[in-house]
Write a protein that binds this DNA or RNA. Structure first.
Lengths: 220, 220
DNA sequence: GCTAGCCCGCAACTTTCGTTGCACGTCAGA
DNA sequence: TCTGACGTGCAACGAAAGTTGCGGGCTAGC
């Protein structure tokens, strides 16, 4: 599968956790834990020294914390894949960790037997996320998903042309601007808007614009 | 590793691609391709019939497209993990696919030998992303964050009364409705709106409404 | 005590929006 | 073939949204 053995560095301020992870990973023939570190500074050193393929890193640590360590490691030449670990459900660090250059975000409740596969995938350069992290990443607020579903359901009732017009509303454009973009007369755009408002059960273009946003029609 | 064999359904309008994927995956002892489909509608049927653990789905297909199919599958009871596939580098569909309920987003240039591990990880409930998809996703989320910050920064320039009016815009209310809620004349609300638009650098109330939403003024 | 600056409130006027009615093409089915 | 439903496009008219100007109250500073 992988060309050669996958070298792994573990970073956690709790030695028990490191030992536990090491025991799991060393049971795989193609994975070797080459070092472990107790804080961010030591982690960066270990990475420089051992040039591992994968780093499993706790985020909450004394001294240099995990996020900072990830940033520093990501700046190294040919950086390893750093997978962030947290005790609690994916918290607000998901986005920041990925931005810092993390190649994954897992909760510590991840079943041990899954971990080996996850390390292999990370070593291949892919990103792996716990389900909770994915939810966090995709839908910031709870309830947003439900709103999106409802919005999408209605948007699907629209014709292609109507959807294009709706996208314009989602950006807050005027009828004239939409007309220009779609090469239509302003009058035509008006009639599209009017028909859409009925279908979407919106009272005015502002509501339709918000709905377009909910539906993910506007990337912004 | 996994309890039993992982059942997989392949969805791609190009039979060659399906055959190729099937050959790769069937070489793994713990993976079985139980069915393949050429479009979204057939994909949903196949999922209902075979109850697979994982679905590999092309996004660009004739008829019911991949995104729609993902949404429908995600609404089924005990849905499988749907991994989206695209030919090109992660395009604008990444966010939408994940929001629709996808458990992964891979480019078709993914090395075959990686694919088996990726399917196993997806079957465990984790999310897998190609590097390009991750960059795209992080960039989008970072952009949203920045948009929110900018929005909040501007909203702070507003007076209390103006903020109340803005909240109304964020719900898509008319001037008359806002006037009623705040016990003002409609004319007064208009002047507030006009002053706000200048401060917020918005061209119209729809843009202001979207800004209010970004700023978190509307709970919805 | 004046005045400069700000927030608040309103009315008259202009611009944009939204509704309604109409015409043309396409496509499915009687 | 015809017909009825539907998507698309436009124009005219009434209804909103948005602009501008004005006055009153409040506070800070000279």
């Amino acid at each position: 599968m992988s060309p050669g053995v996958i070298r792994v560095v573990l970073v956690d301020d709790e030695p028990m956790v490191c030992a536990h992870l090491r025991a799991i990973l060393d049971s795989a023939p193609d994975i070797t834990v080459v070092d472990q570190a107790q804080d961010g500074a030591a982690a960066v050193e270990a990475v420089v020294r051992h040039r591992p393929h994968v780093v499993l890193m706790d985020l909450r640590m004394p001294g240099v914390d995990g996020l900072t360590a990830i940033e520093r490691i990501a700046r190294l030449p040919e950086p390893p894949a750093v997978v962030a670990l947290t005790t609690f459900d994916a918290d607000q660090y998901v986005v920041r960790a990925l931005r810092a250059g993390a190649a994954g975000f897992l909760v510590k409740t991840t079943p041990p037997e899954d971990l080996i596969g996850l390390v292999r995938v990370a070593a291949d350069g892919h990103t792996v996320l716990s389900p909770a992290a994915t939810r966090r990443l995709v839908a910031v607020r709870a309830g947003e998903q439900a709103a999106r579903d409802r919005a999408l359901h209605r948007v699907r009732e629209l014709t292609e042309r109507e959807t294009e017009v709706l996208a314009g509303l989602g950006e807050g454009l005027s009828n004239a601007q939409i007309a220009g973009r779609l090469s239509l007369s302003e009058a035509t755009v008006k009639s599209y808007v009017s028909r859409m408002l009925v279908k979407l059960e919106c009272a005015n273009r502002t509501q339709a614009g918000l709905l377009a946003y909910h539906a993910g029609l506007v990337t912004r």
